[in-house]
Amino acid sequence: MKTLREDVLRYAKGKYKTEPEHLWRRFPHYAVLRHEDNRKWYGLIMDIPRENLGLHGEGRVDILNVKLADTAYADMLIHQNGYFKGYHISRGNWVSVLLDGTVPMKDIQSLLAESYTVTSKKYRKPKERPSKEWLVPANPKHYDVIHAFDNKAEIDWKQGRGIIAGDTVYLYATAPVSAILFKCSVTKTDIPFDYAEKGLTITALMKIKLLKRYKPDEFPFALLKGEYGIYAVRGPRGIPHSLSEMLK
């Protein structure tokens, strides 16, 4: 079975001069990555039974535990394919990442870099988190998303949990369109709104400004699933680094 374990260890050694530590006789394949100065962990590679993560099949799978700065971002990731709440490190913003290729190595490197920074001796938690990119579903049955920006460049939209002003939103039109149609910047959030009808409930709005349009055949669901591992867009979610680069 494919594993990125050695790729991660080589990257940590080359980038951060880290030699893995094997601390437990019972678990010889567990590898701790830690800072030289404060001895804090910024990564932990483990091999665990697939069933412990609710995965199908038998045998064990390698995972990497990393710590993130933002709770909302950590919560968002664990709802994506290949990510889980920190395995045996549930406190704080630890997440577990599959090392079986589900999550690309580029994304793992970015997460490892953030974890290294967050656990460093000089780290001070910023008052505001950096901007993030989101994939947000838009149901044509509830809103004419195809023509949303025909008459104006900025519109009100249902606010997703964790989204703040300054973030980037990619509107994904669900079936029958099933494709990303717009790239938008979030200009304002937390606009009070009270709506509950036809199975849709909205308690707050955000303002989004159009930045770019995409044709329905540029980023259809089949491409998102086949190339970027996005199997569903049921709510606001982050996007892989590789997809982010293509959307730009």
Rank of each mutant, 00 (worst) to 15 (best):
D47N: 15
N139R: 14
F27D: 15
P130I: 13
L44Q: 02
P126E: 09
H142S: 10
F221N: 06
K225S: 13
L77S: 05
I202N: 07
I108C: 09
M46Q: 15
T71C: 06
D167I: 04
V169K: 03
I63D: 11
K225L: 05
V32E: 06
G57S: 03
Q80R: 10
K209D: 12
G86K: 06
D167V: 10
A232Y: 08
I208L: 09
A175T: 11
A113W: 13
A31E: 06
L243H: 02
K152D: 00
S96L: 11
A196I: 05
T102D: 06
K15E: 14
L55K: 05
T189A: 11
W41P: 07
Y214N: 01
K125L: 10
P220F: 05
A12V: 09
I89N: 07
P140T: 01
V66H: 03
E128M: 13
A232T: 12
D144Q: 04
S120M: 09
Y214T: 04
L9Y: 00
I208M: 11
T168L: 14
T71S: 14
E51P: 12
F27K: 13
E218G: 02
D144H: 12
A74Y: 06
E128H: 14
V186M: 13
Q109H: 15
L135N: 00
S96Y: 02
A74R: 12
H35C: 02
